[in-house]
Structures are given as C-alpha cells and as structure tokens.
Design a protein around this nucleic acid. Structure first.
Length: 558
RNA sequence: GCGCCCGUAGCUCAACGGGAUAGAGCAACGGACUUCUAAUCCGUAGGUUGUGGGUUCGAGUCCCGCCGGGCGCGCCA
C-alpha cells in the first residue's frame, strides 16, 4: 500500500492543478504539496498550508482558495473529513478503517513497516570513530560510535545500501610519538630509563606500561642493545596492533561493528596520495608557492588555500584525507557520511572544496559533528585531559552504567549539541532515567503476553481486529503514534538525526504507559480483549523495531 | 580581529521546509496499587523563546545590529 501521505499529496496536487487551470494561473516552479501534522491532534491527522502558500500567486484570500481546493479534491476512501480552519489551513481526518488497515499492516508484515525507498538502493558509506590507535577509546569516541552506528541503521531502513568504515590513522607523527612513549616505558621497566627519555607530549596513560610489558613478554630485553631509531618501528607496529585490538573489543562490546577497517598507511602503499595530487594538478587546482604545493580551495569557497605538500617534501594530513575521500567515491559510493569531533568544524570548507575538485557535488559528502560529552558523577564534573592521560574511557563507562544506558544517553540529544552525561543518573533505576522508562514498556508488554499465555489466551489472528472497539482516547493516541513511525524514520534518515528516533521511542513508550494504566487488556471481554491484544502486539513490534535501530536491548522483565 | 555553532520553564532538552494556543522530562506540590509489574499514571504550578530592529498573511525558526557562551582560524593531526 502506498503511504497515506503520498496519497494525500497526489490528491492535493490534482486539486491545485485543477484550480490553477480554471483560473488560468501558472503554478510556481518546482511547486510541491507540503503535508504536516496539526499541532493539536483534535484538528485532524494531517494538514496542509497550500492555500496560504498559493494565496499570493492566485490573488485570492487563503480561506477562499482553501475551500476552492477542497471542492476540487478527488475522492479517497481513507479520508473521513476535510475542513478549512483558521486563516486557511486544510485539515484532514482519516477513517477508522484506515487505522485498522495500518494495524493490520504492522501485524502482518512488521519487517516492512517503516522501510522506505528514500535511498533508492544507492550506496552510502558511513565512516565513524576513526580514532588514532594511540590509546583506548574515550567517551567522546563512544558518542561518535553510537551516532554513526545508528545513522547507518537508519539509512539502511530508508533504502540505502550501507557500509560502515573505520579509518585507521596509522601513518602520522602521532604514531611515532606513541612508539617513543612505549619504548621509553620499556627501558624504564627494564631498569635503564636514562637510555630512552620519555618524549615531550608523549602518551602518559598507564596503558603504555601495559604495552611495554607485552613487548617484554614477547621479545625479552633484546631491544636494549639496539639503537632507538632501529627498534622504533617495532614499538610502533606492536603498540598500534595491540591498541587496535582493544578498540575492536570495546566497539564490539558496545555493539558497534564495521564492514571495513581502512588503513591510512595503505593509502600511501597503494600510491593513492601521489595519484590524487597528480589528479588535482592536472586539473589546474594546484600551484607552487614558498617551496610548497598548494590546493586552490578558495576556488570552491574555502577562505584560504591549503598546503598539500610541505616545502620539506612530505604530504600534509589534508593531502591524504583528500586521497582517502577520492578513494571513497572511486569505490562507488553515491553518498559519504563522515562523523567528526566538533573541534574539526573548521576543516569542513576545505574538505567540501576537495570533494568538488574531485568532480562531485559538495552535498555528496555529509559531515556529522559530534559535540563534547561532559561527564558528571553526582555533583562533580569528571575532568578529561588526554595530556595528563586521565581521560575517562568508553570501557569504564560501559562497565559502570551498561551498554543500553550509555547508548541511549549518547543518542538522546542532537549530536551537534554538547551532552551532559550524569553517570549516577544513568545507573539509577528510577523515573529520572529515560532508558528504563522505555524498556519498562517492553517489559510490561511481555508480561501481558506471559499472563495471557498462563490463562490459555493466545495472540488472536489479525482478522479478529475490531477497530470500532478501540475507541478510548488512549487507544486512539497509541494508534496515531504507531502511524508516525515511517515518517520518523524517513525524517531521521533525511536529516541524519538519530536522536529523533530516541524521542519517538520515548513518545511511544509513554503512550503505551498511559494506555496501560487506563485500559485493561486481559479480561476486558472477548472481542475487546482480542483487539487490545492486537494493539499491544503492534506496539511491541514497533517499539522493539525502534530499539533495534538504536541498538538497545529489549528486556523480558524488569 | 575574522569565521562557524549555540542562547527556549528553576535544571536538561523538543518543536520535522516559516504555520494554528511554544511542548516533554526532572526538580516542587497534591492525588491513584484488591488489577496484565506503581521503574507507571493523573492533576497543579512554571515562558516577553538573550536583546533591539527588519522581512510577511504568519517568526523560536529567515535577515541585520548588540549582549553572553562554545569551538575554530598551522607547511599539526
């Protein structure tokens, strides 16, 4: 069945065209019908403001135009009532039979419900986390991990073919610094600290000792006798490999899985950086100045040009990043989503410029900025500083508050606004904690079916649904919220805004709690009981589906 | 100094492309368990959407100024 909002759009488009033809008026270029939900539910299920938008073009009062549009509207079996309200709103109410068909659709093909063809089978890559393998993941990475993962889930639901990718920044100076830090720990542990002084700005976390111990275990003290520069690559490689193992384990436990782990080193090994620079040079987007090679990013709206190759001959990080993005598009992705820390926002214009130089639209690259996570524990703010090595790791947080609550908190706010994360609150099993509120709804639903089973009552067949019997305000509200799921998924996909789905889950759980408190399911009388059981089942399917997208588990009981 | 983002109830936040009477939760107060789980529900109170202009049928949303906060402005990554 075609979505009801699509059907309504077509009806109104026909009506508007008919009116336009009668009046001999030309519709504005690219005119489209925009449907919205009335703010007050008693006004109807849908509303449109076409009459107000077109009043000027038609030279008529919005109110009169609205009435004219209505009288030209083709019939539709799902439409119960249409009325003009206020200055020219057109409000539409749908039939109860439409509600019934919606519930039947959810019950009979839950897999399909909420799925859309927005992506049209196009390929999208979501690249996220991408932390240097220089230390364990901290909470900021965790937020990016949750946002990237759920964004990918949502895009898949909206008809995109999705790949998740982690870009391993394993080629830069930071890796060298890590190697030297661990090397210094190695000498220190073996009693010769003076031979390998700890580097300035080195990585100070305790984990560097763990890494050094691991190397001692595997290699003994043989590096003591080797020149530092000679053994450094071994320290870098071994440390990076080990840290990457930790990172994979953390992400795995956080229910985040990648299709591709892409190494920055591989970019160089495949010569893609040089190739990309040649590509830009051949198209005249580069020039030499002060002994360096520059990219003319100002030609694409950046505020200044950017260096690709330093005067000392080595490529910049930006150069490898352009090569990386070229490779993404060369791999056939129609859209590329990057999830970055918000402190990188100044980097966006040059990256968008690069994408254009590569011959793509700047809109083919979407960038999600992840704002800071402020950790609180009760009263005090937990300080975070990579410099001192005393940052809070993702591991610590999920061990302390659990994966469900951590994911929920990371996802509940729009990702570009800073997040206050109260560890005490997230752990607390109380009404202040929204995770439990949502999960509790699942547990209650399960307990209804458990109790039903113990009474010998099974889930009735879909045909047993009698929509007329589901007439209480709480039932109507619950059905209405269920009906918004597809548009919520589409909205979240279109805006790349996973937090909207968290709000939906909370809303649906709330509507269920209200329903539950006001309406008894079991023992309500045979026909009503059956219809309510089906409504509860539909709620369960949609709620579990939403939590599935969010990567939050569904408790049997609480 | 320049650029980007933000400012909504005491607190944390919603408000989908400009739409109708700006919504939730927490905190406060008062109520509801003989019931499928009270980790729930119902009610009360709480607002000049930082501020001053502008655009229009209509502005929390768009434009300009100001105030306050965050971030960025490397041949770092």
């Amino acid at each position: 069945m075609k979505d009801i909002d699509e059907q309504l759009k077509e009806l109104f488009m026909e009506a508007v065209k008919a009116v336009a033809a009668k009046r001999g008026v030309e519709l504005p270029e690219g005119f489209d019908i925009f449907l919205e939900r009335p703010r007050r539910p008693e006004l109807g299920d849908w509303a449109t403001t076409v009459a107000m938008q077109l009043a000027k073009t038609f030279g008529e009062r919005p109110f009169d135009l609205a009435n004219e549009i209505i009288s030209n509207l083709p019939q539709n079996p799902h439409v119960e009532h249409i009325a003009v309200a206020g200055p020219g709103f057109i409000n539409i109410s749908l039939t109860r039979e439409w509600e019934a068909s919606l519930l039947r659709e959810i019950l009979s093909s839950p897999e399909e419900y909420g799925r859309s063809d927005l992506g049209g089978g196009r390929r999208v890559q979501v690249e996220f986390v991408s932390a240097n393998p220089t230390g364990p993941l901290h909470v900021g990475h965790g937020r990016g991990a949750a946002v990237g993962d759920v964004t990918a889930n949502i895009l898949a639901m909206a008809g995109w073919r999705v790949e998740r990718e982690y870009y391993i920044n394993d080629a830069g100076l930071q890796m060298e610094l890590l190697g030297r830090s661990v090397q210094s720990r190695y000498f220190e542990l073996l009693g010769e600290p003076e031979k390998a002084p700890f580097p300035e700005d080195g990585y100070k976390g305790d984990y560097t000792y763990d890494l050094a111990r691991g190397i001692i275990e595997a290699e003994g003290d043989r590096f003591l006798k080797v020149r530092l520069e000679e053994s450094l690559p071994a320290f870098i490689t071994r440390s990076a490999r080990e840290i990457l193992k930790w990172i994979k384990k953390d992400l795995d436990d956080f229910r985040v899985h990648f299709d591709v782990w892409y190494s920055e080193k591989a970019l160089y090994e495949k010569n893609l950086v040089d190739e990309t620079i040649s590509f830009l040079r051949n198209r005249g987007y580069t020039y030499e100045k002060d002994g360096a090679l520059w990219f003319r990013s100002t030609a694409f709206g950046d505020e200044k040009d950017r260096v690709l190759i330093r005067s000392n001959g080595s490529p910049t990080y930006f150069a490898s990043d352009v090569a990386y993005h070229k490779d993404k598009f060369d791999r056939g992705f129609d859209m590329v989503v990057d999830v970055w820390g918000a402190d990188h926002h100044g980097y966006i214009p040059r990256m968008k410029a690069a994408v254009q130089a590569l011959g793509r639209s700047p809109d083919d690259l979407k960038i999600l900025l992840i704002q800071l996570v402020n950790l609180f524990s009760g009263e005090g703010q937990v300080s975070m500083s990579k410099r001192s090595g005393e940052f809070v790791t993702l591991r610590q947080v999920i061990d302390e508050v659990g994966v469900d609550a951590t994911r929920y908190f990371f996802l509940m706010r729009r990702c570009d606004s800073p997040l206050d994360f109260d560890l005490e609150l997230a752990k607390r099993a109380s009404l202040e904690n929204p995770v439990f509120y949502v999960q509790y709804a699942c547990a209650r639903i399960n307990s209804i079916f458990r109790e039903a089973a113990s009474r010998g009552v099974c889930l009735p067949p879909v045909e047993a649904l009698d929509i007329a019997s589901l007439g209480t305000a709480e039932e109507r509200k619950l059905i209405k919220t269920l009906s918004t799921f597809p548009e919520e998924v589409e909205g979240a996909a279109g805006e790349l805004a996973p937090h909207r789905l968290v709000n939906f889950a909370y809303q649906l759980a709330g509507d269920f709690h209200v329903f539950y408190n006001a309406n008894r399911v079991l023992g309500a009388g045979e026909s009503l009981e059956q219809s309510r059981l089906l409504l509860v089942r539909a709620t369960q399917l949609v709620l579990e589906k939403t939590l599935g997208l969010l990567g939050i588990s569904i408790p049997e009981r609480m």
